[in-house]
Simulated assay, not measured.
Amino acid sequence: MKRRAFLLGALALTACGTSEPEGTIRIAGGEPGGFYHDFAALISRLAPSPLTITPIQTGGSADNLKHLREGTAEIGLTLSDSAHLEPGLVALGRVYENYLQLVVLDSSPYRTPADLAGEPVSLGATGSGAALQGERLALGVREEHYPLRNAVDALKAGEIAALLWSGGVPTPELDKATGIRLLPLDGFLPRLRQQHGKVYERVDVRMGVYGSPVDIPTIGTPNLLVCRPDLSAAHAGAVVRMLVGKAAQLVPQQALGTQYLDVRSLIDTGKVPLHPGAAAEYRRLHG
């Protein structure tokens, strides 16, 4: 993904000039070590007074949608393919791209996903977007479902042959796990797009990431920041002003160099409609 320009300072100044609503918003994030967890922490630290945003640790996309359904969170991060399965959901913006990463030990004999048939593989934590995508890949493996840190430990111990993870690149937990490599996943893209639409696209994990000597083609999926439909217009607008005016500060370390919150694509939320308050704020800011 090519780097794009962030919003010009004038918009940030416009956003800062708007009074902020009071209250607390709970954001369903993700598991430690992952992009969602880091993004939720950043947006909570940057919340403008008197607004408070409180992060909730979760298992990922599906778990976040469950929090929204049950009213234990007002906003949450989710992969767009997971969001499409949730009726009545509305969005505050499209934020980043997740990279699907199928990780093996560098010393292993596995060179293609087909080589893993019948082997134990962690297909993401229960409740994660990777778990849904692992199911859709239909790798023919013996499924396990570990949180990322546990999956890395199991991979190193030889308890699993591979792990599937959906997140930023480089994901810190994987970046510090020396002796790993990624298997290409672009071969699954035609079938996934035929069955589930253009929510999936080809992306490349660039040479040098995790020590790879070449680019590794894989599958990218947009991340959406979504919310309960009953979120007030004032709170929806406040979050949009953060996404626009503080874009450069809302880049987790694992997204640096490969993905960027792009203010021009924030409104591109696909089949998930924008919250009316968010749409109104984008119109106010962009004209």
Rank of each mutant, 00 (worst) to 15 (best):
Q133C: 12
G134P: 04
E135G: 11
R136Q: 09
L137D: 08
L137I: 06
A138H: 04
G140D: 08
V141H: 11
R142E: 06
E143W: 05
E144C: 13
H145N: 14
Y146M: 10
V152C: 01
D153F: 13
A154I: 02
L155Y: 05
A157N: 10
E159K: 14
I160D: 00
L164Q: 00
L164F: 06
W165G: 12
G168P: 12
V169A: 15
P170F: 05
D175S: 11
K176C: 01
G179R: 01
I180V: 09
I180Q: 03
R181N: 02
L182S: 04
L182G: 04
L183F: 11
P184N: 01
L185R: 09
D186Q: 05
G187C: 09
F188E: 04
L189D: 08
L192A: 12
R193Y: 11
H196V: 01
G197H: 03
G197A: 02
K198E: 15
K198D: 15
V199C: 01
Y200H: 03
Y200I: 00
E201R: 08
E201P: 00
R202Y: 04
D204C: 09
D204Q: 08
V205D: 12
G211H: 08
S212T: 15
G220S: 05
N223L: 13
L225D: 11
L225H: 03
V226N: 09
P229M: 00
L231R: 14
L231V: 10
L231Y: 12
A234I: 01
A236F: 06
G237F: 06
M242I: 14
L243Y: 06
G245T: 15
A248H: 14
A248W: 03
L250K: 14
V251P: 09
V251E: 15
V251K: 11
Q253H: 06
Q254L: 11
A255C: 13
L256Q: 13
L256K: 12
T258H: 15
Q259V: 07
Y260Q: 05
D262I: 09
D268P: 08
L274W: 01
P276E: 12
A278Q: 08
